[in-house]
Design a protein around this nucleic acid. Structure first.
Length: 213
DNA sequence: CTACCGATTGACT
DNA sequence: GTCAATCGGTAGA
């Protein structure tokens, strides 16, 4: 019998860099159900990822990296497992950078199901309703106090801001797939993944359920 | 320097 | 459903 136990693992442990160092679509798919965690002086806020979009380094005109590296998108070209945070329409969006071999790919986190720290989120958002807290990429950034100061943050450290494993008791997710929201180009690419039927998914209602095949 | 615009949101018809 | 506010990044003069 082993005289020593394997290192204890908590579901709150951060996803390792190897998780992000894979094909962007696989990472996007596997991020569904994982938990975004943010610790600050105000306390912990936490949410279950229910909607993501992949942006690809090649063949994807909608990707910020499509026209090469600039000051804004530099973190997309860095190591996997870092944050890419950018500002748009006077708000912020949060991505996880993936796979260095295809430098310039990232996964946008579009929506969370709130799990913990609801009152902190309410205070930051200035709204009470659960559905207004983290449904949408810029809303979740406000609820989690994520701005461009977190750009290039290492999500594998497991402190302040990271993505952790799913909860053991979490219910199974049926994955829906669709074109990405809010972009004009590349509508033929099905790079948005979401938890089918989950009410915290963003976008028009008809995009909350996958089409019958 | 100016002009344009977007991976959004919230208010409104 | 429609629409305008918002502001940093980017390109171009």
């Amino acid at each position: 019998m082993p005289r020593r136990q394997a290192p204890s693992r908590s579901p709150d442990d951060p996803l390792p860099a190897s998780f992000y160092d894979r094909d962007p679509e696989l990472v996007a798919l596997d991020l569904l159900g994982k938990r975004l965690i943010r610790d600050s002086d105000e306390g912990r806020v936490e949410g279950r990822i229910v909607e993501v979009e992949a942006y690809l380094a090649s063949g994807d005109p909608a990707c910020h990296a499509a026209r090469g590296e600039t000051r804004r998108n530099a973190s997309m070209f860095g190591p996997p497992g870092r944050a890419y945070v950018y500002s748009i329409h006077a708000r912020y969006c949060f991505n996880a950078v993936v796979q260095p071999e295809q430098s310039g790919s990232a996964i946008l986190i579009r929506a969370l199901e709130p799990l913990q720290g609801l009152d902190i989120m309410r205070a930051r958002r200035g709204r009470d309703r659960l559905l207004d807290l983290t449904r949408g990429p810029a809303r979740l950034c406000e609820a989690f106090a994520i701005d461009t100061g977190w750009d290039s943050w290492d999500l594998c450290q497991g402190n302040q801001l990271w993505i952790a494993h799913e909860l053991p008791a979490a219910d199974q997710i049926v994955v829906g797939r669709s074109p990405r929201i809010g972009i004009r180009t590349a509508q033929d690419l099905l790079l948005r993944f979401f938890a089918d039927g989950n009410r915290f998914v963003s976008g028009p209602r008809h995009t909350h359920t996958r089409p019958v095949q």
